[in-house]
Design a binder for these strands. Structure first.
Lengths: 208, 208
DNA sequence: GCGCTTGTTATACGATCGTTCAACAAGCCG
DNA sequence: CGGCTTGTTGAACGATCGTATAACAAGCGC
């Protein structure tokens, strides 16, 4: 029995990534209330002190986890759009539906996201992360809507409506997944998107 | 200086209502993380022990607060529908828009609601309260959609879409209110509702 | 193989958490 | 006014929170 090392030194970036991943799992499993230093450290298989060492505190780790999850989601959306080819309408549908299908519409990822939402009100740095994320999503959506023929005056309200639709479906997909059948949320989004953009195209700059 | 009473005995129902109101204020101000026995008791101007006395624990108080807020919202929606007269379309619009205008679209109430969402995953009793609430809202909406001429086969997906739309607008209205102008959220909902039901009416039982 | 650097651990500390309960006093009843 | 009921208080308890820090050891350079 040659005693094996009690721990191993990791590359700082890998260690940070591992802690962020553990934090995301804890947020998904127990919500924001369960994201304690000890719970995250246990999940990551390290000692509690490491979190302070790498992030300075648990709040900063949670914020870093938000940023990481958001980057991951944005990359998946971009990939879905790229894979959809060059047809404007197909690209738009890909952007919207990708949020509602695996791997984005994952139980763990959605739970993590709701935990972040619950922190927005009380934590200014989380609030600004949210504002940036929301703005990016809506800007990307507006660009695709414009390509798909939605006239400029209707762009803002259509983008806001579709964003709300996706967020709402996302929310319910997380809070009680059994509400929807396999892929039903994406199908609803596709149908609603169709209705919203055809109305926006014909109505032009109408005000309702 | 005749010494005035250090406290006064209250009617049990009034006391419970006062504690629930204090709990809602704390949830709105500090989120679910701040809803401690001591914070709520301080907000209500009573001693911490009283919460245990009346509700058995803080968890039960939070659940009771959820139930109370939900009842209040449902009553406001019903009142809005009743005030809208007998035109099916006006009644439907009233139901949808009431959620996005004062007094429902209130900063405190929305914050409280998000705090509840964040508890759904980790607390089964909160999850079942949510399922009931969501089901009631969607059933009410489906009934109004049917009155407004949405054919039965499209009822489920239209109700799900409109519910998601309202929830998504609600969410953003709470997380960063400055995104919307005065009444803009309601206007977007009205326009989207119009697009969704006219499509549902003409498409009939189509599958997209 | 040895020493040095430093990533990692484990403990300690004060604050706060939820809950419990003995003591107190508000307010009714005789 | 005096006694009694009981709503209310406030302290005490053990558990857990986040953070700081001293001791340890992994792994590299020599």
């Amino acid at each position: 029995m040659t005693s094996q090392p009690a721990f191993k030194r990791a590359d700082p970036d890998e260690r940070r990534a591992s802690l962020i991943a553990a934090c995301a799992r804890v947020l998904a499993r127990d919500g924001a209330a369960g994201a304690s230093v000890r719970a995250i450290a246990l999940e990551a298989g390290v000692s509690p002190g490491l979190i302070g060492h790498y992030f300075g505190g648990v709040d900063a780790l949670v914020a870093a986890t938000y940023a990481q999850v958001e980057t991951q989601v944005a990359a998946a959306l971009d990939a879905a759009v790229a894979a959809a080819g060059s047809d404007p309408r197909a690209r738009l549908e890909a952007y919207v539906c990708a949020s509602l299908l695996p791997p984005i519409a994952d139980s763990e990822l959605l739970s993590t996201w709701i935990a972040f939402w619950s922190l927005v009100r009380a934590r200014p740095e989380i609030a600004s992360l949210h504002d940036e994320q929301y703005g990016r999503f809506r800007a990307g959506l507006a660009a695709l809507l414009a390509e798909a023929g939605v006239p400029a005056p209707a762009l803002r309200r259509t983008a806001l409506a579709v964003t709300a639709l996706v967020d709402g479906l996302w929310l319910e997909l997380c809070l009680s997944p059994r509400t929807f059948g396999e892929g039903e949320a994406a199908a609803i989004a596709r149908g609603s998107l169709s209705a919203l953009i055809s109305t926006a195209r014909s109505a032009g700059s109408g005000n309702s």
